[in-house]
Design a protein around this nucleic acid. Structure first.
Length: 954
RNA sequence: GCGGAUAUGGCGUAAUUGGUAGCCGCGCUAGACUUAGGAUCUAGUUCCUCACGGAGUGGGGGUUCGAGUCCCCCUAUCCGCACCA
């Protein structure tokens, strides 16, 4: 029988389903191993060949681990909440649940054809109430906890309340905790809850009608749809991820990720050490009141009105020549002098109305305005002007800086533009002092020596930084501190298709719905757009109020603000559901808990996580935060959820083009005959009617009516298409659908070929050329187990040394390759092995049986078929044992030293790995070649290189 | 601008991690079997040269008996961040 994958593959896929081959239990004598893929968002377009790349790699590893005797958890599910389904709903009125369900079914169908070893019994969907119940539950835990700085972990908010009750400190407006009313108390607690409601500057996307997180915005445009995004102050739920900033940085030390990925996360968190310093305000003409707590929850420690700045370069404080506030700074109103008032207000208004995109595009443009007020440099007691400029950001530090134009490029540009003084306080050498007004650029480097800097003059910069901070702390006007670029995560989305917040509003105070009442089900609504009054889509829901007494959702008409209250109208963002799904897989059917302690104690964490690097600053940060929080409250047992992480490279599309003549739009010119590029129009052509860049002319004519009467200028009877690497997308007709390839070559060939394309981590264009080579390999491989008349035929004879060498080499190479995730080389190894065994005409069971096991992770269907043929339909190759290799078959038995002379001054001689230096040198000296080439003279040097080579310099 | 990565035949890639550069596959060339082949098999295929030979891992320098691999300086491409004080 020929290699008939169309018969083999569905048969074994059915067999695995029937036998529950990949069903995993949460207990076993075997060691455990958890292999996870980033679950997909089920889009309407279905899977293209890029999606399965990572799944195939992880499936190979999971199957390999199983064969090595591990109990392997390898689940799959769907990140089912998301914007596209909702956009589609707005257009068509179809319920997103329905389209999502359809898309999931399509995904499942496609995935099943590729022969993955997922335990589908553990499938999760983020939009399933049994799943999002726990997303909501976690939100409530975040709401009910605060971050205790002393213990460096999350603690129940009740502990904070207890502390506040005891402490006699004034909190708000000189009042103690016990003196505050409920609203004031709750408002105060919002400053501490890990999930909190606050007016925050958010990325508002008017087109999508929702707020977006920082990682959902690129260059001022939304990632989904590419719509403009503006900065806006809105009352929003946020997660206090910044509380975990340090632990998120530290945790990176413990995980086995690529350096580049860790670096992306470090940059995103953006830790920088420096000092917070209070600058007194010297504003005789203004009306500054008593000292106030302005930022960072700090209370002004100085006796006179002052404001706080953050700097990483406290050593340059002697070079401060002006201060700058961000346009949003609340001090502006208080300090601006009457003369400057109009100008400052005009600037602030202008700055606020600028879109994010404008602001980012005009970064180089200097703008700002003087407030008329002055600050006092606490170390020099100089009077320095306070300016306002949008180059200072509201969201970082305190939104105020001390400007040192000589040593900061932005301050330098600002000083130049407004003709402010520039003073040198750092020099590369101790006496390298010059007039900074003549400089081309500022001296920003954190090296060199302090000059003109009072008591730190002459110190190295690093020492000066330390000395100045010490001084500031001693004076009580500031302290050492760390700042992070990371912001708290905006957690509200003004849209429908997401998890509802389990929150109702009792006279403006957000209150949690009791845990026992979860899940709070997403209601059906009539329309998916925002309401006429600009409320999120959930505003359309009629039955959307919380009846506290009866603990259930009731009609909005019953709201009386006594026992029935309005529910939150926004929903959670996409990352809510994906932040803990890997934990739910451990115990997916548990309706009493997120997951049982037994389950998490058994599996612990994800050992191998495979997915795209595009999640580096989104999902992978949120999930780590989520896990750390769950760890703090005693749920997850390990702080870092993803031990090893592999980023599969993106598969780009390879588009094909035909060239239409500009003078004759029925004439298409073959690529090689196009002389002048401007005389033709390249047109994308569906890659499915092109084979190896040769156009199928008949199918092309049928493809589009306007091409039906096309004429062609051919090269040697063929029409050759041009090509280009582009993103894989429908509009470029370059989407390769895995189903078509499975139908034509089989799943095993697709799996192997995707691995053969190159290293998993590397981005690469999809190119179907070459899949034939892998397909040929399978036909050849199949023939190893069959005789000339295509009947299954293997014999039990003893294998020869040569055959054993081939086998053991293959075992060693493939094992090593899988361990280091180098699947493209293992495919090559299998090809070499098949060529060698075909050459040796080897049909011996002792060789072919281990070989079938070896290939099973890559090509499970053919492996299963051959295994059953060899074992009279008993057992499954999935239960086989991974073969071990024996070194002795890998070494040549005769100790011959193949000698070669490289034509110049030295010999290179191959040696077996374990040979000793003296033996090797003696053996070399004994050869005739040695005598001949050294002409009887003693060589200058004999260099022995461990392993295999001797170099002899004559 | 800052940070990270990469650079090898016509193409995808490999190189036992410092040891004969180009494995394996695609493509191409020639041949065999075939009515035919987008089937199968055999041989060849880094470049220059009829050949002898020579050159060769983006460019330049260095370390080493020996460098695709390590170090320094460029160049190009890709990715991340981007007024982060």
């Amino acid at each position: 029988m020929d290699y008939n994958f169309t018969e083999i593959e569905p048969k074994w896929q059915q067999y695995w389903r029937d036998q529950k081959t990949y069903h995993v239990e949460n207990n076993s004598q075997k060691p455990h191993y958890y292999v996870l893929d980033m679950f997909p968002y089920p889009s309407g377009a279905g899977l293209h060949v890029g999606h399965p790349l990572g799944y195939i790699a992880s499936d190979i590893y999971a199957r390999y681990k199983r064969l090595r005797g591990f109990n392997v958890l390898h689940p799959m599910g769907y990140d089912a909440y998301g914007l596209p389904a909702e956009q589609y709903a707005i257009q068509t009125g179809q319920h997103p649940a329905k389209t999502t369900e359809q898309n999931i079914n399509r995904y499942r169908e496609q995935l099943d054809k590729i022969g993955f070893s997922f335990d589908w019994n553990r499938e999760v969907r983020t939009c399933d109430p049994q799943y999002y119940k726990w997303t909501q539950w976690t939100f409530l835990q975040l709401f009910n906890h605060y971050y205790d700085e002393e213990q460096q972990k999350a603690r129940p908010i009740s502990e904070l309340v207890a502390k506040l009750e005891k402490s006699g400190e004034a909190i708000v407006d000189g009042k103690k905790w016990v003196e505050l009313n409920e609203k004031e108390q709750q408002d105060h607690l919002m400053n501490f809850r890990l999930a909190y409601l606050a007016d925050i500057p958010v990325n508002w996307c008017a087109e999508l009608g929702t707020v977006l997180a920082n990682d959902e915005v690129v260059n001022g445009l939304s990632v989904r749809g590419g719509y403009p995004v503006e900065r806006k102050l809105m009352r929003q739920w946020s997660l206090r991820i910044t509380a975990y900033a340090q632990r998120l940085v530290d945790g990176l030390e413990q995980v086995d990720w690529t350096d580049s990925l860790k670096e992306i996360q470090r940059n995103w968190i953006g830790r920088s050490e420096g000092a917070a310093v209070w600058f007194p305000i010297d504003a005789p003409t203004s009306s500054v009141d008593a000292p106030t707590a302005l930022f960072m929850g700090q209370v002004d420690p100085t006796p006179v009105p002052s404001f706080e700045i953050f700097t990483t370069r406290p050593d340059t404080i002697f070079g401060v020549t002006f201060m700058v506030l961000c346009p949003e700074h609340e001090l502006i109103e208080k300090i601006t002098t009457p003369e400057q008032h109009d100008e400052v207000m005009a600037y602030v208004t202008w700055a606020k109305n600028r879109s994010e995109r404008e602001r980012q595009a005009e970064v180089k443009k200097v703008s700002g305005v003087f407030t008329g007020a002055y600050a006092i440099n606490p170390l020099t007691e100089e009077r320095i002007p306070i300016w306002v400029s949008d180059y200072v950001l509201a969201g970082y530090g305190t939104g105020a800086i001390m400007a040192v134009p000589a040593h900061d490029s932005r301050d330098f540009a600002f000083a130049r533009h407004f003709d402010l003084p520039i003073r040198q306080v750092v020099a590369t050498e101790k006496d390298a002092i010059s007039d900074p007004n003549t400089w081309e650029e500022s001296l920003d480097a954190k090296t060199g020596y302090s000059v003109n800097s009072g008591f730190v003059t002459g110190m190295k910069v690093r020492d000066a930084i330390k000395a100045v901070i010490d001084k500031i702390e001693e004076m009580g006007i500031g302290h050492r501190t760390v700042n992070y670029r990371l912001r708290d995560a905006a957690f509200s989305r003004q849209r429908y298709w997401g998890e509802p917040f389990p929150i109702y509003y009792k006279n403006g105070i957000p209150c949690p719905i009791p845990e026992e009442c979860l899940p709070l089900l997403l209601p059906d609504i009539s329309e998916y757009k925002p309401t006429a009054t600009g409320e999120p889509p959930l505003g359309h829901a009629d039955v959307w109020a919380w009846d506290v007494a009866n603990r259930k959702v009731v009609s909005k008409s019953m709201i009386d603000n006594e026992t029935v209250f309005p529910l939150e109208l926004s929903t959670m963002p996409g990352f809510a559901g994906s932040s803990g799904y890997y934990l739910r897989y451990m115990d997916p059917h548990n309706d009493k808990a997120y997951f049982s302690p037994e389950a998490v104690n058994y599996w612990q964490k994800v050992d191998l996580y495979v997915g795209g690097a595009e999640h580096a600053s989104g999902h992978l940060i949120y999930a780590r935060f989520w896990n750390k929080f769950l760890h703090d409250i005693g749920l997850s047992v390990v702080e870092e959820p993803f031990q090893k992480l592999v980023n599969q490279g993106m598969i780009q599309g390879r588009s094909n083009f035909v060239y239409r003549s500009k003078t004759d739009n029925k004439l298409f010119i073959s690529k090689g005959l196009v002389k002048d590029k401007d005389s033709v129009t390249p047109i994308h052509v569906d890659i499915n009617i092109v084979d190896n860049d040769i156009l199928d002319i008949e199918r092309f004519k049928e493809w589009r009516p306007e091409f039906a009467d096309a004429r062609f200028e051919l090269e040697e009877g063929k029409y050759v298409c041009g090509w280009e690497i582009e993103k894989m997308s429908k509009s470029m007709f370059n989407v390769q659908n895995p189903d078509d390839l499975v139908a034509r070559y089989g799943a095993d060939t697709l799996r192997m070929y995707e691995m053969f394309l190159g290293p998993v981590e590397q981005a690469k264009p999809w190119d179907t050329k070459g899949i034939e080579g892998v397909f040929r390999f399978f036909k050849k491989f199949w023939r190893l187990y069959h005789n000339e008349s295509n009947t299954f035929s293997i014999c039990d004879a003893e294998p020869t040394k040569a055959e054993l060498k081939v086998l053991h080499q293959t075992i060693k190479k493939v094992t090593d390759d899988i361990e280091r995730f180098s699947f493209n080389t293992s495919v090559s190894t299998f090809m070499i092995c098949a060529n060698d065994l075909a050459g040796l005409k080897c049909n011996k069971r002792a060789v072919l049986e281990p070989l079938a096991v070896l290939i099973a992770p890559f090509a499970p269907h053919i492996a299963e078929e051959l295994w059953h043929l060899m074992h009279n339909d008993n057992g499954s190759v999935c239960d086989a044992e991974w073969p071990a290799y024996d070194e002795k078959y890998l070494v040549e038995d005769s100790f011959k030293y193949p000698v070669s002379f490289n034509g110049k001054m030295r010999f290179t001689i191959d040696l077996p790995a374990d040979v000793q230096q003296d033996d090797a040198v003696a053996a070399v000296r004994a050869t005739d070649d040695f005598q001949k080439w050294t002409a009887g003279k003693e060589p200058k040097k004999i260099i022995f290189v461990p392993k295999r080579i001797i170099n002899i310099v004559c």
